[in-house]
């Protein structure tokens, strides 16, 4: 596959297609599960070696690369804790959201 970016979603209105024929959805879901979290991952930037294991195993793929460390997009992070458990450097800690 040469292409790795999505094509723009179909637009019913532009195509002049009635919105009451076959049920279709043409807007991307705006839902963000960040508010499901009871715990959040916190990265120790000194320990992070950018091995990408957290990215590899993050179910929502919310890991973001920074200059010297990996961090998390908390809009979508559900707080499952896989990253903390799998991090070979023990660089990620889960802390309670209330704290």
């Amino acid at each position: 596959m040469s292409r790795h970016q999505s094509y723009p979603l179909f637009n019913l209105e532009q195509a002049n297609v009635p919105d009451d024929l076959c049920p279709v959805a043409t807007d991307i879901s705006p839902m963000l599960p960040g508010d499901w979290r009871s715990q959040r991952p916190v990265v120790d930037r000194d320990k992070c070696v950018k091995c990408a294991v957290c990215w590899l195993y993050c179910p929502v793929q919310c890991v973001e690369e920074h200059a010297a460390w990996f961090d998390f997009n908390l809009n979508t992070c559900k707080g499952c804790g896989i990253c903390a458990t799998e991090c070979p450097q023990r660089a990620i800690t889960m802390i309670g959201e209330a704290q």
Partner: peptide, 10 residues
């Protein structure tokens, strides 16, 4: 989509 309703740790 960035947000899917899979269980935590799915």
């Amino acid at each position: 989509a960035p947000g899917l309703a899979g269980c935590q740790g799915c």
